[in-house]
Amino acid sequence: MPVDALPPIFLLTHEFHPVRGGIATFAEEMARAAADSGRSVEVWAQAAPAEREPVWPFPVRRLSLKGSQDFVCQARLAWELVWHRRRLRRGILFLPEPGPMLAMMALQFFGGIRPHRLVLTFHGSEILQFHRKPITRWLTRRLIRQADRVSTLSRYTRELLVSRFPEAAHKTCLTPGALRSASERTAAVPTARESGHIVVLTVGRLHPRKGQLLTLRALAALPPATRARLEYWIVGGQSKRGYENLLRAEAAQSGLTVRFFGSVPDAELENLYRQADIFALTSVDHGDSVEGFGLVYLEAAGHGLPIVGHAIGGVPEAVVPDVTGFLVRPGDSLSLTAAFARLIDDEGLRAQFAAAGRGWAHRNTWRRSAELLFNDLS
């Protein structure tokens, strides 16, 4: 079938530019890849501050909702789906994250609000959250049965999904993550170092699951002479329940030079990546919150950074153990400190991991993931 005869794709998300994070990156890149392949794509996204919208290869409708999962937000999104039901009957409705899924769960009993095709993507934590309560478990099962295709970014997440919702087993495909388009364009640009120290960089929202505190403690356990050669840079905002205050208090007592950058624009983040020597993200399970994959690990590898992380969730699918970085069992603080020590003391090993990481990060493309998800859906 000619591309221009294929049904349009309507991508609904609460996490889209200027929101940062793995889900926002996934939504943006999948929409871009589908549009670049000639598909008709329209993104419906949360409200955003009055600033210049980036140039997208597809139209973006900013909805009058803040993008949370509370009742008001879900009701407004459900109303949008009802209002545009005739357009959706001719198109592919793509729900790449849990917020829009919850809205659609409430509408799935009304036959008049059925898209031509329904596509879902699960990332990890929402699987456990939807399964925990009987009502959302039942609604999720119904939604998956109605879906034409389901995807995950990692085998770990697929296994987690199928174990909780067996209905997904025969309709789930793997849509691997890839480098952000901006990273591919700018990763090779050299930048002068601001410091003669070895820089350990963490990028991620300030949340206990992201493990910044564990990285800080592992670095603080290094010998004083080693600590004197280091700087620990923490990038990220959205602090959870005073977590940033705890981090700052421990940083002040750590004997390390620790810099907090908060949320930074893409151009500044690229600069920080190019000045760093080691990337660290020691994620852990935190209640129902799990690390389903971690696009940021690919981003770090694409910038030539050796990685230190935890062997947990889908992380071993983003980091090749002992090839692009070190993965340590969660809770093994001695081994975590030893992993940092090896990379700090061995410049050759850092270069070896960096070279392997660059190749590894480029093995997948968003274009291929979009083809896997949308091809044959006519």
Score class of each variant (00 low, 15 high):
residue 75 A to L: 15
residue 66 K to P: 04
residue 53 E to H: 11
residue 22 G to V: 06
residue 61 R to H: 13
residue 34 A to N: 09
residue 2 P to I: 05
residue 27 A to Q: 00
residue 80 E to C: 09
residue 46 Q to S: 14
residue 77 L to G: 01
residue 14 H to P: 01
residue 70 D to V: 09
residue 64 S to Y: 03
residue 54 P to L: 12
residue 18 P to F: 09
residue 39 R to W: 10
residue 10 F to K: 04
residue 55 V to K: 12
residue 41 V to C: 04
residue 16 F to W: 01
residue 71 F to G: 08
residue 28 E to N: 00
residue 76 R to Q: 10
residue 84 H to V: 03
residue 81 L to I: 14
residue 15 E to Y: 11
residue 21 G to R: 12
residue 47 A to D: 12
residue 73 C to V: 08
residue 55 V to F: 07
residue 36 D to L: 14
residue 82 V to M: 08
residue 20 R to M: 15
residue 82 V to I: 15
residue 36 D to K: 15
residue 12 L to Y: 14
residue 17 H to W: 14
residue 56 W to R: 12
residue 37 S to H: 07
residue 44 W to A: 04
residue 8 P to K: 03
residue 26 F to R: 01
residue 67 G to C: 02
residue 12 L to F: 14
residue 73 C to S: 13
residue 54 P to G: 09
residue 52 R to Q: 14
residue 64 S to G: 08
residue 18 P to V: 05
residue 40 S to W: 02
residue 36 D to M: 11
residue 34 A to L: 05
residue 56 W to K: 11
residue 14 H to E: 06
residue 50 A to W: 04
residue 14 H to Y: 15
residue 20 R to D: 01
residue 50 A to E: 15
residue 64 S to N: 14
residue 22 G to F: 01
residue 27 A to P: 02
residue 81 L to F: 02
residue 51 E to S: 15
residue 75 A to R: 13
residue 54 P to S: 13
residue 41 V to F: 06
residue 25 T to I: 15
residue 4 D to N: 13
residue 10 F to I: 00
residue 10 F to W: 02
residue 67 G to R: 10
residue 38 G to E: 04
residue 46 Q to Y: 05
residue 21 G to M: 02
residue 60 V to W: 03
residue 39 R to Q: 09
residue 64 S to L: 11
residue 62 R to Y: 03
residue 21 G to V: 10
residue 43 V to G: 03
residue 33 A to M: 00
residue 30 M to Q: 09
residue 8 P to C: 04
residue 3 V to Y: 01
residue 44 W to P: 03
residue 8 P to A: 05
residue 53 E to W: 09
residue 63 L to N: 11
residue 22 G to W: 00
residue 70 D to Y: 03
residue 83 W to M: 11
residue 42 E to V: 13
residue 48 A to D: 09
residue 67 G to M: 08
residue 67 G to I: 03
residue 18 P to S: 03
residue 40 S to M: 08
residue 62 R to N: 11
residue 17 H to C: 00
residue 22 G to T: 02
residue 61 R to A: 13
residue 13 T to K: 02
residue 12 L to Q: 03
residue 6 L to Y: 00
residue 65 L to T: 04
residue 49 P to H: 06
residue 37 S to V: 03
residue 14 H to D: 08
residue 46 Q to D: 06
residue 20 R to H: 11
residue 60 V to N: 07
residue 46 Q to P: 01
residue 76 R to L: 14
residue 57 P to V: 08
